[in-house]
Design a binder for these strands. Structure first.
Lengths: 331, 331
DNA sequence: CTGTTAGCGCGTTCAC
DNA sequence: GTGAACGCGCTAACAG
């Protein structure tokens, strides 16, 4: 049996009216301290829990936020989700989860449901860092976009700073004295790939260097692409002393290929990856230096801002979340 | 401006009383068809949405289920979560997500919150397949355990059939004519590792074979362990013609080591893994034959049962979810 | 068939 | 300080 114990029960036990009991428990001012204590004790004794729905029925807040993912089955959303859940949980907010399966119609449907349940705010978690159209909303609920920013720059968006990530990777190699740097990149249709390339280019230009091959090698995100390109690079005519993989996956492929080719990492060629994906980074030989996108932190920051926005804080626009270099043996 | 349009508005527009409007919209019998239509049209015209909280306030169901994860940051819970969310979503149930961070206290706290919000049912998603103590509940809400079964066999639990998985792996190798089979396993503290070993052993015994080394090599889950053991095996005196990795991770390590040692896969030694983890399985050389634990399906089944349980269905006890062999080039 | 009345449990006036 | 009374939006019982 749940808790059929109502405020009326508490009031009766404390010998006061429901109105007074309500005030006492909600910390309203107009209650004598002794009465307040008496009521609180009665409530505790009966282990009274206010009826959530009765409370929500006539109050603006529900203490619930909606989290809409475009694609739960994505390794990048997990940390974001975790960070967000954590931030909300400690703020005693409950999270309603809805996965849109990368389908705009489903997303719209879920949004309806969430609004019906009067969520205090919405967190929209994207699948890539490509900007996405803002959600069409009828009600005026605060919305925060994470990972995938809204295409409307006035919306609040939290997305990792991939340009800075690219810059960090290149700068690290340059500091290590590398001058012949190649970038084996992921798919050009991904903003993440383009941004990382831009960052690398910036750092190289600033150091007066040119990318090996003149440009980033856009391709696919997998190990296979990393292997193929790395092999081509070492067998090709141009000297190379460092390879940046557009992802840990690609970097891992590159390392494996270099190994097969008898090239020493990092002595002959240094390798850096992106994402700092535990799994790939720690078990590769040698362990991979990588840029951590701090996704959990990103999720936490976004969630925190949503809380603030519910409190009335203005949109910060597009926020580029900090990233950091994690040095291991490969570079 | 959400929808300040109430049932009263609809009733007024349709020229009936709120009671009649309510009955009409909820499909109660005692309403003339013509009035029902009139009310429905009025509701549609005003785009009326019933107030969720008012509805919940005096009805047993809330159309919400609570999903409690012990550790969101775990690659095994994702698919389960996805399958579950999918099953609920299509049944128009909303999901309240709560992550316990592998902390019993936090779990208890979240359960409280969920019960306060009167969830219709609870899905408890574990971190490993090790049995876990049942959640201490005050209310009588249906509970279903996924991945990690409840230690109380009377509870409804859905967990992958790791024994069968082990059996499948071994049987496949035996069919391929392999007779010198070794099992490089994960940590012995994991039921998954022990169960898989038991399944392998069963299949071998049934075929009159013995495991190479006499027993499974319990160790760690990583690639490193797979590499080390594989190297030892091929360099050791005993002949080996097949290796089962306790996970794709281990199997991948084994494959890499065999490659280094100049051993051909699968010609000289066949390799099989578990989990069918896309990432590892597809990019290894050669692509890895693996047992798919069908986790998304498991989540879906558990969710479906929870829906049934809310409808009054009895507990099926511990259900071992089906697994399947996915053949690729390594065996 | 339809409308009137009475709550669901709580917060909030407004008198006392 | 305290309590009686009303309303949130809806559904269920009883009349008509």
């Amino acid at each position: 049996m749940a808790s059929p114990v109502t405020l009326a029960d508490v009031a009766r036990a404390a010998g006061v009216s429901v109105a007074t009991a309500s005030k006492a428990l909600n910390g309203r001012a107009q209650v004598r301290e002794s009465t307040r204590v008496r009521v609180q004790e009665a409530a505790a004794a009966l282990s009274f829990t206010p009826n959530f729905f009765a409370q929500a029925l006539n109050s603006a807040r529900t203490g619930t936020i909606g989290m809409v993912t475009s694609d739960l089955d994505n390794r990048f959303v997990l940390p974001v989700l975790l960070g967000a859940e954590d931030a909300f949980g400690s703020g005693s907010l409950s999270v309603l989860l809805a996965d849109a399966r990368d389908d705009a119609l489903r997303e719209q449907l879920h949004l309806q449901t969430l609004l019906t349940r009067r969520v205090d705010g919405l967190l929209i978690v994207g699948r890539t860092t490509n900007p996405r159209p803002p959600v069409p909303l009828l009600a005026d609920v605060p919305v925060v976009y994470v990972y995938a920013p809204s295409s409307d720059p006035k919306d609040a968006s939290f997305t990792p700073d991939n340009v800075q990530a690219g810059r960090l990777a290149a700068e690290h190699l340059i500091e290590k004295g590398r001058t012949r740097i190649a970038l084996i990149n992921g798919e050009a249709s991904y903003a993440a790939a383009r941004d990382r390339a831009a960052g690398v280019q910036q750092a190289l230009t600033a150091a007066g260097l040119e990318m090996v091959g003149g440009t980033a090698l856009f391709g696919q995100w997998g190990e296979g692409w990393g292997r193929d390109c790395a092999r081509l690079l070492v067998r090709g005519g141009e000297p190379v002393d460092a390879i940046i993989g557009g992802s840990d996956h690609i970097a891992r492929g590159a390392i494996d290929a270099l190994r097969d080719e008898g090239v020493r990492v990092p002595e002959d060629i240094s390798v850096v990856g992106f994402d700092n994906w535990d799994l790939l980074v720690r078990e590769s030989r040698p362990p991979l230096t990588s840029i951590d996108m701090s996704l959990e932190e990103l999720g936490r920051a976004a969630a925190q801002h949503l809380v603030d926005a519910i409190g009335g804080a203005p949109s910060p626009g597009v926020v580029a979340g900090p990233v950091r270099l994690v040095v291991r043996d490969s570079a």
